[in-house]
């Protein structure tokens, strides 16, 4: 019960802080519209006035709906970006505010504090995805088929990315500054996961790297289930790979958090930044 109270108190505090900076809210509403839209313009230019480029794309990607293809990729990447920055930077933000040590020495569960911040982040990232999808439907008339399987894939993707965010957040306790690392990881996902193109256009070694990243499977599954209407049997292999990523990243993130917390307490470095 005490943990739930700590969780809610942190979530409420984060929400209050966010409400004090309305420019963040504007960014949350506009970025998910601007980023995919301008990429769609680029794909329209590549498709050409006679759609000759679009036909080439359809042969490679297996779908002639290049707008939907690109939109899903960008939306998923933007969402990953938001989660990775927000969850990964939770402890760093507390360090900079000077509140990490004082919160950490209370008897409240540290994970409850972490996940309390995470709830606000989750709500904001879900709003981002929702804005993108509504705009995508209205502007480009893309029909995304919503099904329980699609919801499950989204949930597993969330778990995988939160696990990754937890790993970054834990490392902050030890190395303190992780902006470059987060930038590098989001760049890796952008290049390797086939956000705006089928991964078959990349060299073989890059395709191998892509297979080691959870977002590759998230995007592939959402495209196949949401756009092409595939069922569980068609995508079961990718589904279970994503499941394995979700479980291992969450467990890995949790264990690393416990470990880093102990190291930070032993070394007495919580107050430094």
């Amino acid at each position: 019960m005490n943990n739930v109270r700590a969780f809610w108190a942190t979530a409420k505090r984060e929400l209050l802080i966010r409400c004090r900076y309305p420019d963040w809210f504007v960014a949350m509403l506009l970025w998910p519209i601007l980023m995919p839209t301008f990429t769609v313009f680029a794909t329209q230019a590549l498709a050409g006035p006679d759609n000759s480029g679009g036909e080439v794309f359809a042969e490679l990607a297996g779908t002639s709906d290049y707008i939907g293809f690109v939109f899903i990729g960008i939306v998923m990447w933007s969402w990953l970006n938001t989660v990775l920055w927000q969850v990964g930077a939770t402890l760093r933000t507390e360090q900079r505010r000077g509140t990490l040590e004082s919160n950490w020495v209370t008897p409240a569960s540290r994970l409850a504090i972490m996940f309390g911040s995470g709830l606000t982040n989750m709500i904001s990232s879900l709003i981002t995805v929702a804005v993108s999808l509504i705009f995508c439907k209205l502007m480009w008339h893309i029909d995304l088929t919503f099904s329980p399987l699609l919801g499950l894939v989204f949930l597993l993707s969330t778990a995988a990315i939160y696990g990754l965010g937890l790993i970054f957040a834990s490392l902050v306790l030890l190395v303190r500054e992780l902006n470059s690392a987060v930038n590098f990881v989001r760049g890796m996902f952008m290049v390797f996961c086939g956000i705006t193109y089928p991964i078959s256009v990349m060299p073989h070694w890059m395709q191998t790297v892509a297979k080691g990243l959870p977002l590759t499977y998230s995007i592939r599954l959402i495209r196949e289930i949401g756009l092409a209407g595939a069922g569980y049997r068609d995508v079961s292999d990718a589904f279970w790979i994503l499941f394995a990523f979700a479980v291992s990243l969450l467990a890995g993130g949790y264990m690393l958090f416990i470990l880093m917390d102990r190291i930070a307490a032993r070394k007495g470095i919580l107050g430094q930044y």
Binding site: G48, P49, D50, G53, V56, F57, M190, T196, Y197, M202
Partner: peptide, 23 residues
């Protein structure tokens, strides 16, 4: 880099045939 591969996905033999129609 993603723009390079995106261009490649719309190209034949390194030529963005549709893009040429616009530019």
């Amino acid at each position: 880099t993603p723009l390079y591969f995106m261009g490649k996905a719309f190209s034949v033999g390194g030529h963005a045939v549709g893009f040429e129609g616009f530019t």
